[in-house]
Every structure is written in C-alpha cells, then in structure tokens.
C-alpha cells in the first residue's frame, strides 16, 4: 500500500520528464463516485491502475471517505455539500472505505 504515497511524492519532486511521463498519462483516467442520501453511488467501482477516483458530496449532510485498511490507504477531510475528494489508485487491489460520521455508509474500489 505504501507505494501510493511514494509515487505521488515522486511526481511532486519534479523528477526528469522521461520518468514522470508514463505515470502522468495513466493518472489522467478519472472515475466518479457520488455521495447522496447517506450512500455512495456506485458502492463498488472497478477501475484500472492509475485511475483517479473523484468523490463528490451531493447530499445536504457532510460525509467523508476513510479507508478501512490498516494503515489507512486514504482519508478525506470532512466534505460539506458540493465538496470533492480525489485519490489516485496506483496499485491493484481492493480498497474498502466508509464514512466515519455515518459508519453504515460503506463502499469499495476494485483496482485491477
């Protein structure tokens, strides 16, 4: 799991373009999860490695997106109505998450 942050750091560190280019190209793929009525839509989303998943809160209640892995693969700040969180999934795997404000809200991203 720790490959994810390291890859992000590489990008931020401004390494030679040759090294960064293939990663940047893959990161352009995006997929969406909508949060509404205390639920994630879709609850299960399949994406290719390198995809950036964007969660948008369309509910009138704040929610968040918290990985259930230990250590956590990702954790958003609290998202008020219309706020957005995104995370790029570099490595294949199943990433379960929930809302720490409403723990009955659960979803997962399957990368592979």
């Amino acid at each position: 799991m720790d490959r994810l942050p390291r890859r992000r750091q590489l990008l931020r560190a401004g390494l030679p373009a040759m090294l960064v280019a293939p990663l940047a190209a893959r990161a352009q793929e995006r997929a969406a999860v909508t949060i509404d009525e205390h639920d994630y839509f879709p609850r299960e989303l399949r994406v290719a490695p390198g995809t950036t998943v964007v969660w948008t809160n369309k509910d009138d209640t704040p929610h968040n997106v918290v990985s259930t892995d230990n250590p956590r693969a990702f954790r958003s700040r609290i998202m008020d109505t219309t706020e957005v969180f995104e995370f790029t999934f570099a490595a294949a795997g199943t990433y379960s998450y929930f809302c720490s404000l409403h723990p009955h809200m659960r979803g997962r991203i399957i990368v592979g």
Binding site: E37, H38, D59, D60, T61
Partner: peptide, 8 residues
C-alpha cells in the same frame, strides 16, 4: 425516509 438527513 431513505436516509437520516435533515427533514427539508
């Protein structure tokens, strides 16, 4: 209701 959100 479908969810526990505020009664709007």
């Amino acid at each position: 209701r479908p969810s526990a959100g505020p009664i709007r």
